[in-house]
Nucleic acid binder design. Sequence first.
DNA 1: CATGTCCTGCGTCAGACACT
DNA 2: AGTGTCTGACGCAGGACATG
Length: 244
Amino acid sequence: MVATIAETDESAESEGVIDSHKRREILSRRPSYRKILNELSSDVPGVPKIEEERSEEEGTPPNIATMAVPTSIYQTSTGQYIAVAQGGTIQISNPGSDGVQGLQALTMTNSGAPPPGATIVQYAAQSADGTQQFFVPGSQVVVQAATGDMPAYQIRAPTAALPQGVVMAASPGSLHSPQQLAEEATRKRELRLMKNREAAKECRRRKKEYVKCLESRVAVLEVQNKKLIEELETLKDICSPKTD
DNA sequence: CATGTCCTGCGTCAGACACT
DNA sequence: AGTGTCTGACGCAGGACATG
């Protein structure tokens, strides 16, 4: 996890807004984790790409989308294969040989099941009635209608056949009174917040995945480095045997 | 047991960026 | 230009742990 240092001093409270503005001006925006990881994958074959968001919405069945540690296979300069398994185990194998001497497998310390109680947002594919569904905490389903200029959102119980709860759709032309306008503004704000909420969750998930991939690369490169050092020592011994 | 500290995750805001 | 998406930053809440 990347630690951030936050200025929480009371005396700096008044300057906080200015500071954050300056910081944001100074700091240029980094490319997204998806981009970074995909660039890494183009550099190093075997580094998995982060899937495009579309795949979740279009093709996957409506079950829980679990975050898997990517399984990757690397080939070293010496022709060895290094596989990073899902459990975080790294295996080294020589093609065409029985195995390697020394370290063959190691388990990453950050591997393991996700912590219990982690919030899981479930995305569903398009359902039979042409709507898109996604699940929110509280055992409710928000259904987005597929037709119409204005998106319609309904809160349903997951197993209910008929829509229940509030229907939040409205036609823009039908809004006249200030109260209706205010309600529409509130509705739009709620919708925006809801979307941003989900986006933040997804962003954090991607960030975690990105960090895990980097850690995997570090582990692999450390193993590779160790092998190369051992190789070098062996070659040194061969080339310059001791004469005692 | 009460308190303090640290860590983690969440929601929100703001701004950069991508897309139409 | 307008709109949607992504992500850093911020503040808050809750859990784990150490200390007195």
